[in-house]
Amino acid sequence: MDYITGQFLVNLLMNGILIGLIYGLMALGLTLIFSVLGIVSFAHGEFYMIGGYVVYYLLQAFGNLEPMIAILIAGAVTFVIGVIFELLFLQPMGKGDIERPGEYAILLTFGLAFFLQHVMIGIVGPFPTKVDRFYDFAEIDWGWLRMKAATVWFFDMPISSSRLIATGVAVVLTALMIWFMSKTWTGRGLQAVSQDRQAASVVGINPSHMNTLAFGLGTMLAGMSGAALVTVFAWVPWVGMPASSKSFIIIVLGGMGSMPGALLGGLVLGIVESFGAGLYPDPSKALAYKDAFGLLVFALVLLVKPTGFFGRKL
């Protein structure tokens, strides 16, 4: 236990915050889908996976492509796949044909996840790939802040630069989404549908169009987060499964359907996992239980306050 010092705890907290923002980015799309359609998409991680592969192959084909454009293209690709899926399979739900839409959607998206994952295994093969960090940092040494291409030392605390870029993308995307939802007509329409479908259709918003749009935007966000995170993690066709389960935890923690909640839920999850794995007494099992710490908190929150931190009453 002698390794536990103030510096160690601060490092754990910092790690937790960084990975937490990254988790928040993963969950951003899912929370939009939940708020408008009222469903949880099990295929969320697969869109995330596809987004990463789109960037990988784009950068393979056009080496000097601006990475941010590649991220946008990845978002466009997953948007299109998401919209097609919504139109083909989820439309009857909006029409009220389905008795229990929540369960119907879980099963359907599970089938989709299975389908996408195995198709990708067939196409791209099973071996890990990865994209190098989008930008190299300049070399700086100011004492409290040292920078190298791959790492930033902030008061002697090492921070991966690819993570820093990814968290930057996370914050920007969240801010954009919050702006979009509150300031544009379409965004307000989405919010209106998520609050009261009937009232929204009375004032001239077509809820079924809004469903399609929300699902597409959700999968687009998933694709873009994958596109940003393919620089942080090694990529394989089944990389989406853990991302999905992390996203479920986050949207429940943050309150289903709340955008800032997703980031906060991500932060909580990141910090819990970081401290759990850092402080669990038996080192050989600390990391083996890392996912369990998050799941435990998740289960407790579900039992005590199912609406999460930011969620409205359902």
Binding site: Y3, I4, T5, Q7, F8, N11, L12, N15, G16, L18, I19, F233, W238, V239, M241, P242, E273, S274, F275, G276, A277, G278, P283, S284, K285, A286, L287, A288, K290, D291
Partner: peptide, 22 residues
């Protein structure tokens, strides 16, 4: 000292911090 991790644990930062603290 052995650290074991579940497959699919993408983030190892907590353990790396822990190794560095020892």
């Amino acid at each position: 000292e052995i650290y074991s991790a579940d497959k699919g644990v993408a983030d190892y930062s907590a353990i790396i911090t822990r190794i560095q603290a020892g």
